Simulated scan of single mutants.
Amino acid sequence: MKTATTNFKRFGSVAAIAIAGTMLFSACAANEDAPAGESESTLSGTLDGAGASSQGSAQEAWVAAFQTENPDVTINYEPSGSGAGREAFLSGGVSFAGSDSALSDDEIAGEFASCVPDSGYVEVPAYISPIAVIFNVEGVDELNLDAATLAGIFKGTITTWDDAAIAALNEDATLPSAPITAVHRADDSGTTKNFADYLNKVAPQVWDAAPADPFPYAGGEAAQGTTGVVDAVTNGTNTIGYADASKAGDLGVAAIKVGEEFVNYTPEAAAAVVAESPLVEGREATDLAIKLDRLTTDPSHYPLVLVSYIIACQEYTDAEQGPLVKAYAQYLTSEDGQAEAADAAGAAPLSADLSTKVATALESIK
């Protein structure tokens, strides 16, 4: 039995500018369209962020909407990948990071260059989304995969589409006798870490590498960023990859086995997993990192899900950045901001309980 797959919407009204060869989403262009005199905002200045490419569509929508209400603010977001975003934030290159991976213990123990020493940091969920297993296989419109088979495909132990393990899960499909091209992220990616965490938890006998931002195994095809993976799967032959569901487009999307059923992603099924997962123990009150429950057998849940965070300082060495970061983070985690992400990227909204905790943590920014 399958649940229906949600069609994710596209959002393209925000302008993008190229900086250092990477696309940056900027609120500058929205300034030209905002009617003069309609905003009562007193905020002004430029805010730079970087990180998770999974947040790309949502960030475009957030930036555009925030700019409309705050026409004297310019926000740039570089979708450079979670690892690069955290590195840029830790080194002081940007004022906030978007990351599909929570800060590691080593990162927390280090220095935050933009933060006032000993002032602390904030890490809050902002974007909840399924990870789609995308495929482009000749003659195949629907594909069922369990965790062990999916792990074997990306580890490289299952190498052809008519392998017995795949055929057993897809009795009605005509699978080609062709090599599998499994596409993974080339950059340090929180999407990779979430994908690997799911496989390691559900199929540890196959996926024996510890979850991490770098892809752990040799082989397959590497592509840069979410867009790179989607392009490689789209333009390749008999390909499969993983990406934030907002970018799946018209590609085939595999159903994954949860309990005894094969389940397609929906925002609701992804949100159900997050709502029932605990916070990581031993963190500060302003750190709301979530330990996702990948082992659910409830077919109303979709455990191949990512939670993407906003990481910021509690107090900035540049005092002008604090009010901007606080206001922007409060907006994108608000009911209106979450609705924008749902419309733009099909994201699942934060639960009421999590929203309350997020609001409390963000109040500490100054």
Rank of each mutant, 00 (worst) to 15 (best):
T6H: 15
K9H: 09
K9S: 15
F11P: 06
A15G: 08
A18W: 14
A20L: 05
L24R: 10
S26K: 00
A27G: 10
A34S: 04
E38K: 04
E38R: 02
S41Y: 07
T42K: 11
G49I: 09
G56E: 12
A58P: 02
W62R: 08
P71H: 04
G81Q: 05
G83I: 09
R86M: 02
A88G: 00
V94L: 04
S101W: 08
V122D: 03
A132V: 06
V133N: 12
I134K: 07
A147K: 04
A147T: 02
A151F: 06
I153V: 09
I153K: 03
I153E: 07
I158E: 06
D162C: 08
A173Q: 11
A178H: 09
A186C: 05
A186H: 12
A186Y: 12
D188R: 12
G190M: 01
N194D: 01
F195N: 01
A209H: 15
A223S: 13
G225L: 00
T226R: 08
G236D: 09
T237I: 05
T239W: 11
G249C: 08
K257H: 05
E260S: 10
E261S: 06
Y265S: 14
P267L: 00
P267M: 03
V274L: 14
A275M: 09
E276S: 14
S277R: 11
L279W: 04
A285N: 14
I290F: 13
L292I: 14
T297P: 12
P299R: 06
S300N: 15
Y302P: 01
P303K: 11
L306E: 15
L306Y: 03
Y309N: 08
I311N: 15
C313E: 13
L324E: 03
Y331C: 13
L332M: 14
Q338T: 09
A339Q: 06
A341H: 01
A342C: 00
D343W: 05
D343V: 08
D343T: 10
A348Y: 02
A348E: 05
S351I: 06
K357C: 09
V358N: 00
A361K: 01
A361F: 05
E363G: 12
